[in-house]
């Protein structure tokens, strides 16, 4: 086993173990922190694959954005350090079943799909190439989906502003 493999298994173990801890712990803040480690593990795997851009975006979006948001909502809603009540057995079973079904679906796809090696030369995952691909309008360009996603974000922004602008009802 080469050093590269060892690093991969370490990262995979970090991701999986902390994901498992995130769903089994009964302290909600710890769950958020374990989720954070799981996401960092995934970013580590991207780094291991030398997709540095994707890894950095993973950290910016998930670690710097979403986990911080989750932690903020915990701060604003929860009592400090209190344990959540234990879930009913039926719920636990159902959740395990749902997770297993999802895993089975993904694995089925992976096993059934035969990966054909492409003859084309792989595009270097540099930022410049990613940028030209994203905004490319010729074949293989992602201009339309990129713009659609930006419309979605714009809609979300405007929605936020509308919610924030909602004036309080007059109390007189």
């Amino acid at each position: 086993m080469s050093g590269s493999n060892i690093i991969f298994y370490l990262l995979a173990a970090l991701t999986l173990v902390s994901a498992l801890m995130a769903v089994t712990t009964r302290m909600i803040f710890r769950a958020a922190i374990y989720l954070l480690f799981s996401l960092i593990g995934i970013a580590g795997i991207y780094f291991w694959l030398q997709y540095e851009f994707i890894a950095a975006v993973q950290i910016v979006v998930y670690v710097g954005g979403i986990v911080v948001l989750i932690i903020f909502s915990i701060f604003l809603t929860q009592q400090a350090g209190e344990q959540l009540p234990k879930q009913k057995l039926g719920r636990q079973l159902f959740a395990a079943l749902a997770a297993f079904c999802g895993l089975a679906l993904v694995m089925l796809q992976l096993v059934q799909h035969d990966f054909v090696a492409t003859a084309n030369k792989a595009i270097e995952p540099t930022v410049a190439n990613i940028g030209t691909q994203m905004l490319g309008v010729d074949e293989g360009g992602y201009s339309l989906p990129f713009e659609v996603v930006s419309m979605l974000l714009l809609a979300a922004l405007i929605g936020c502003i509308v919610i924030a602008l909602k004036s309080k009802p007059e109390t007189t």
Partner: peptide
Amino acid sequence: IGVLYISAVSSIMVI
């Protein structure tokens, strides 16, 4: 991605 890496990793600081 030097500069992006820095702004990404420094966002963990708040955690």
